[in-house]
Simulated assay, not measured.
Amino acid sequence: MLPPVVAGVDGSVQSLAAAEWAAREAALRGRALRLVHAWNWQPRSSEGEGEHAVQRYLGRRILRQAEDRVRAGCPTVRLTDEQAEGPATTALLRAAEQAELLVLGSRGLSGFTGFLVGSVALGVVAKATRPVVLVRAEEQAAGERPPGADGGASALTGHGDVVLGLDLNDPCDEVIEFAFEAARLRHARLRVVHAWQTPSAISLGPGDVGLVDEVLQGQEWQGFMSAVLQTWRDKYPGTTALETVAEGRAATTLVRAASAASLLVVGHRLTDRPTFPRIGPVTHAAVHRVTCPVAVVPHG
């Protein structure tokens, strides 16, 4: 059986938006959707069993609410649900191991667009071995997006561009493939973005070539990107991949490029440091500042 798309739900408006987005994604991928509600039960007295029953009842109500939202927006999706006991981060990581991808909600900040990523979402993104997508409450259904200008929603499919933040110093197949597949499923364009900065004299080591003209540096990065993407263009001949190579800070460039996107895809290198969840500065900026759903794809 194909692994399902999994959405974590906790009754918040953000998790309901995540469940709806996950249902549409499951339909696109021909997968089932599994809703997971995690809660931590720690009996401390003889009344522990009663508290356990209450938690299960509340969990069932939360799952039913999410199911109703999913059925209203995507009635044909195959749907299952489960309640998972234990710390939320641990339970969601366990669910993600058996998933095609995991979808979580992110809380929006009042008076400012972007994400406020809580400790659970941050811990899951930092440690998950499967892709994790963060969705905010204001996310619209793809078909509801109005046709826009360049980079906006397609008048034909309703989907804006998929944007891939590509680190050409470490191009990773898992991240690139996820982005191409997401664009193919949506019949959307893929916009591949890489940012570079001119090295300073201090950063040049012995034997390094002297500072190169900035125009030539940009051309070199452009040629490298074209070479990296050629294999994937051959594999996905029906997907238009646009290349953007810009001088500047990677986080700033990526946030700007994703302003009208339907999905942003970034990579996250897994490390052997389980004591403290870390996701890297560019990915951190993306999940906090980008307004569209953000897919974080782990790689070795």
Rank of each mutant, 00 (worst) to 15 (best):
L164V: 00
G148A: 05
D150M: 01
L168E: 06
L156V: 12
T157A: 02
G148S: 04
C172H: 14
G158W: 07
C172K: 15
V163P: 14
A155Q: 04
D173F: 02
L156F: 07
L166V: 08
E177A: 12
L164H: 06
E181L: 10
P147G: 01
L164N: 05
G151N: 07
E181Y: 07
G148Q: 08
P147C: 01
G152H: 11
S154Q: 02
S154E: 04
D161Q: 14
G165E: 12
V163H: 14
V162N: 09
P147N: 03
S154D: 13
A153C: 06
F180N: 05
N169E: 15
L166I: 12
E174M: 01
P147W: 09
E177M: 05
L156M: 04
A155W: 04
L156D: 10
A153M: 09
V163G: 11
D173P: 11
G152E: 13
G151L: 09
D167Y: 08
E177F: 06
H159P: 00
F180C: 10
T157L: 01
H159Y: 14
P147H: 06
G160K: 09
E181F: 03
A153L: 08
L156W: 07
P171G: 03
E177N: 08
G151F: 08
G151I: 02
A155C: 02
H159Q: 05
D170G: 05
A153K: 08
